[in-house]
C-alpha cells in the first residue's frame, strides 16, 4: 500500500503539527488545572493572535517568528484583563456560568474579527515557508521542525515558571486548595488572571509558529480548539507533560488518519479518540484520579 518511508514521513510531520497542538492545549490545560474551567474562548483568542501575526507581517513587514516576542506580553495582558474584568466578575464563581461566559466571549471575538476582516482566508509567505530539512532519506518541513523545537522549549519554560518561581508556587497552591491559598495571603483573583494570561501567552507562540505554513480566517480557531480539547482530555486535564505528549500523539493520529482515510475524514479519528477517552477514562492518561 504505502511505502514505510511515506508513513514515517507522515508520522513525523504529524508529530510536528502536534507540537503546535500541544502549545495550544498547554494554555488550555493550565487554565483548567488552576481555574477548573473550560475556556471556550481559547479558539477565538488563538484566531486573534493569528490575525495579530498576519497584521504585523502585512503592515510592518515583520517576520512571523519575530512577532512572537512582542505578542507574548500583549496576549498575556489581554488574557489577564479578560479574566480579571470579564470572566471572573461575570461568572460569580459558578462553573456552568464560566462555560457560558467564555462561549459568549468567543462568539463576540469571532464575529468582531469577521466584521473587521470579512470571511476571507489570508496567508503570509516567507522565504522559508516551503523549505525542507533533510534527515537521512526523510524530508521534513523547516517551519515544522522549528515549531517542534519551540514547543518543547516553551513547555520547559512553563514548567520552570511553575516549579521554580514564587508566582508559580502561588499558582500551584491555588490549583490545589483555593481557600487555603487565600488564607496564607495569596491574591486568588490575581493568580487566576495571571494563569489565564499565561494560557493566552502560549497562544501567541502557537500563532507565530502556525502562520508561516497555515492560513487565518475568523473561524479558524474553532477547528484548533476542538483538537486542543481532545489533547487536554487525553493528556489529563491540568497536566502539562500530558498536554505535550497528548498534542504530539494527536498530531500523529491526525496525519495518519488523513493519509489513510483522506482529508475529509482525517479529523474523525481525533473525535473518536476524544469520545472514547471521555467515556472510558475521563481523567486522561496522565491525570490524577478524580
Amino acid at each position: 500500500m504505502y511505502s514505510p518511508q511515506i508513513i514515517l514521513e507522515a508520522a513525523l510531520n504529524g508529530l510536528m503539527t502536534g507540537a503546535v497542538y500541544a502549545l495550544i492545549a498547554l494554555g488550555l490545560t493550565l487554565i483548567y488545572g488552576v481555574l477548573h474551567i473550560i475556556n471556550f474562548a481559547h479558539g477565538a483568542l488563538l484566531t486573534c493572535a493569528m490575525f495579530a501575526v498576519w497584521l504585523a507581517w502585512a503592515w510592518l513587514g515583520m517576520d512571523p517568528y519575530l512577532v512572537i516576542v512582542p505578542l507574548v506580553p500583549l496576549m498575556f495582558a489581554l488574557g489577564y484583563g479578560l479574566q480579571r474584568f470579564v470572566v471572573g466578575p461575570a461568572s460569580h464563581g459558578d462553573d456552568g456560568n464560566i462555560l457560558l461566559v467564555t462561549l459568549g466571549l468567543s462568539i463576540v471575538l469571532e464575529n468582531v474579527l469577521l466584521a473587521l476582516f470579512q470571511s476571507d482566508t489570508r496567508t503570509l509567505d516567507t522565504d522559508y515557508s516551503f523549505q525542507v530539512v533533510a534527515l537521512g532519506p526523510l524530508l521534513l518541513s523547516y517551519p515544522r521542525v522549528i515549531g517542534l523545537g519551540v514547543a518543547i522549549v516553551v513547555t520547559g519554560l512553563l514548567w520552570l515558571v511553575l516549579n521554580r518561581t514564587d508566582t508559580g508556587k502561588a499558582i500551584r497552591a491555588v490549583a490545589k486548595e483555593k481557600l487555603g491559598a487565600n488564607l496564607v495571603g495569596i491574591d486568588v483573583p490575581h493568580i487566576y488572571a495571571v494563569t489565564f494570561g499565561l494560557g493566552c501567552a502560549c497562544l501567541a507562540v502557537a500563532a507565530g509558529l502556525l502562520m508561516p505554513t497555515f492560513y487565518v480566517n475568523p473561524r479558524i480557531g474553532g477547528a484548533f480548539v476542538l483538537v486542543a480539547f481532545t489533547v487536554v482530555v487525553l493528556g489529563g486535564m491540568g497536566s502539562i507533560p500530558g498536554a505535550l505528549l497528548g498534542g504530539l500523539f494527536i498530531g500523529v493520529v491526525e496525519s495518519l488518519c488523513g493519509l489513510f482515510l483522506g482529508d475529509s475524514l482525517g479529523q474523525i479519528g481525533i473525535f473518536l479518540i476524544f469520545i472514547a477517552v471521555l467515556l472510558v477514562r475521563p481523567t486522561g492518561l496522565f491525570g490524577a484520579k478524580a
Binding site: 461575570a90 460569580h92 457560558l100 462561549l103 459568549g104 462568539i107 463576540v108 464575529n111 468582531v112 469577521l114
Partner: peptide, 19 residues
Amino acid sequence: RIPGIDLIVFGGVLVLAVA
C-alpha cells in the same frame, strides 16, 4: 453591511445575561 453583527449582539447578550 457588517457581517456577523447579530452574532456579536448574541454573544454580548449572553455574557450580560450570565453576569
